[in-house]
Design a protein around this nucleic acid. Structure first.
Lengths: 341, 341
DNA sequence: TTGAAAGCGGTACCAG
DNA sequence: CTGGTACCGCTTTCAA
């Protein structure tokens, strides 16, 4: 392997000093350091001929800027988060930044680990999709990351910008929709890594039932893990209840898919025999059979907002802390219908 | 923001020199540089107290190692690639490496751009999921990346390790399965970013039909874009043919989902009226309604193999070039059934 | 067993 | 407008 091409090589070849090369490359000519068109051309030519690529680490060391942001993703198995990643990536690229991904697999230990790794990279910013906000706050303090630009989602950290999914209103709309269709026995699959997650959705579900004068039956709420498999198992449990619920709400679309699958396995037709709804409106939701009724905040939009917030803070650290609420609304598709007689 | 804690601070606090701190931290004590237990303890204590985090860029600049690998992903909208990412990430983490992701959105221009960015980071290794292998080979040469550890998937680059998805046998199995079920009019949705992609699957499809003595009808092959939407449109086109095909094969599971959706929209029951099958066996495939018959190579396993290959090469650049063939086999689920009379 | 010092490849200041 | 040069924070060789 031949030696790496450095700035020095370019300088020699163009017959100028390293400083000049640097100035040309970082395009400082537009600003306070003017450069002859001729010099500029020669440098660029040399760069081209030698195939020179500036060394990011050296640049970072000197400038303190990495042009990289880190993204902590809880669950690589949930399409919702892919959507968020896509949104983040789009904005990141617009800004000419790199994206470093770390997955936590919903485990607190790995959340900690990943955060530490991200800290060592001295990223210009971090977007944290949180599962365990409490622990993380502690960890962040220990890592002296306080100064850095950080945007969270899935939990609010004191003194940090945040994007918040507001599922309250959407949940209420969904419950009104189902009750309006005549459903009285509505099951809920609470498939999450940690009990506190999705609490708002569950709360609104319970409140809506109470308001409708329906008894709160513990059987109708199934707590289970966050995977599709868990969701399927949970849904089967609900379907084996007597009397059987006529509608099932999943805490997210993955759980709703579990319910769709469970219905098929029990020979039930959706929405004729059973209505199913979820949250998130993952990409695939409109393409499921039947298309899934769900509450949408917009995964990709969430990612975009988070990234925008982050870049705002990177550009101006003095800005007041912001919190962006992402409203969610009901999207009615084919998986919900009138309560069977 | 208080000044960053540096190695120097730790050294002062522990009453030793910077070199000693470095030796302790990189754990060179196990090797050739022995260190007193006492010194070691004092250093570690100081690290803890000050919350010292080594500066990755400085480390990289000096050592030439980034402990980072780059992963180029064609399409953030295809679950198959997310499986691959998960596999790569798992192995990467086992090795204590960071993962930098770049998406190309299937556009050659962005593939180029991303590659350049990855090159500037001087990653220890690159895993490239290719869409345009031809162009990329050229680009790689221009970037003088030849020396680096690179593993490709989705195309083979001269002198580089590669993981290859061998869909030939699986395709044949799938066609035999469908023909065995009595299907004679079998549609194919070729939804890809570039015609040459998925060529093997299409080839085997055509060959199987020919071997069965069936006429090659151009109508039965729909070429379209790579999104779910494209797939749906393509499938609708197939279903509107007369006589209607009794089975549809998607070039991947996304296209198959499009076919599932199209069937529902036309009031057809799968598999009673129409059989549907795909390729890749994405996570969700078993949970679709009906569960999808597909040809599986194992997305996550592909990622893992690619990463393993990469780390092997990083550890020993002298190794002969390897090529890992990932065999694929048919997974029969509920979406395929006997040809309707 | 520990310390001193020379870079790694850039950037940014200041002098010419 | 361009060149010299002092760093950024760490690793690594060599001496003590």
């Amino acid at each position: 392997m031949t030696r790496r091409v450095t700035q020095m090589d370019v300088a020699r070849r163009a017959g100028v000093s390293r400083a000049t090369v640097s100035n040309v490359i970082t395009n400082r000519s537009g600003g306070n350091v003017p450069i002859t068109e001729e010099t500029r051309r020669r440098v660029l030519e040399a760069v081209e001929e030698l195939g020179y690529q500036p060394h990011a680490a050296a640049r970072t060391l000197r400038s303190g800027l990495t042009h990289t942001i880190g993204l902590l993703v809880p669950d690589a198995g949930n399409p919702h988060f892919w959507g968020v990643v896509r949104g983040v990536e789009a904005v990141t690229r617009e800004h000419g930044y790199q994206l470093v991904l770390a997955f936590t697999a919903l485990e607190p230990e790995r959340e900690r680990e990943s955060l530490r790794a991200l800290a060592q990279q001295r990223m210009d910013g971090l977007i944290l999709l949180l599962t365990y906000p409490g622990r993380l706050a502690h960890e962040l303090a220990a890592l002296r990351l306080q100064g850095g630009a950080i945007v969270t989602f899935g939990g609010v950290l004191a003194g940090k910008d945040a994007v918040v999914q507001c599922y309250g209103q959407g949940s209420a709309q969904l419950m009104a929709h189902l009750l309006g269709l005549g459903h009285r026995r509505i099951g809920f699959i609470h498939g999450v890594a940690r009990r506190a997650l999705g609490a708002e959705r569950l709360l609104v579900y319970r409140r809506a039932l109470r308001s409708a004068g329906l008894p709160a039956e513990d059987d109708l709420v199934v707590h289970c893990g966050p995977t599709l498999e868990d969701g399927l198992a949970g849904a089967l449990r609900l379907l084996d209840l007597t009397p059987r619920p006529t509608a099932i709400v999943g805490v997210n679309d993955l759980m709703a898919m579990g319910a769709l699958q469970a219905a098929a396995q029990r020979g039930l037709s959706v929405p004729r025999d059973l209505s199913v709804a979820g949250f998130d409106d993952i990409d695939l939701a409109p393409y499921l059979v039947p298309p899934l009724t769900t509450v949408r905040a917009g995964s990709e939009e969430i990612g975009r907002q988070a990234a925008r917030l982050l870049f705002q803070r990177i550009q101006d650290p003095g800005l007041p802390i912001q919190r962006i609420d992402m409203p969610a609304h009901l999207v009615i598709r084919g998986s919900t219908g009138p309560c069977p007689p």
